[in-house]
Amino acid sequence: MLIKGRVWVFGDNVDTDLMMPHGAFDKPRSEQAKWVFRANRPGWVDLVKKGDILVAGKNFGTGSSRPAALLFKELGIDAVVADSVNGLFYRNCIDFGLPAFNCASVSDSFRENEIAEIDPRAGTIRNVTTGISLKTGKLPELLLKIIAAGGLVELLTHEGYLEPSGS
């Protein structure tokens, strides 16, 4: 499995309240996604395309347990790579089926619109535009399985653990 896509670059300490502002809570999922980064980067949701990759600085996703990772999936983001990913946001990414990686100097190695290629099993990310390659640390098999299933909700639904929505 290789993940290849156009890169967006964000800074340090981007928090969950920017990703999923409170105003989005009572909206349907598709509309919630339109609220992503409204306060720090208005209009970004109209530019992002399916298959894009997020690159960020330190402590990406600091904050609450709210399902912000789902909104990135809704927007078509295929992977998140940050200098460091906040622990809870990392869990949320993996458990909602969005590959996420810690990579110490990734935010210095990419500019927006460059192309990244990630190899989760080998634990590498390559800047296809500049040729620079970095180690991301390998994703453990346990987590790869969750991602491959599309996340824990899909896994539980498939195994009959969850009621159908709206029932």
Binding site: S65, G151, L152
Partner: peptide
């Protein structure tokens, strides 16, 4: 617990960290 401030329970010598909404369902089910 499905809230980010779950490490609060560490004051009781309990290992606790916040989980997301998908994994808290998993913890309840499995």
């Amino acid at each position: 617990c499905g809230d980010s401030h779950t490490c609060a329970a560490g004051a009781l010598n309990c290992a606790a960290r916040g989980l997301g909404d998908a994994e808290i369902l998993h913890a309840a089910c499995k």
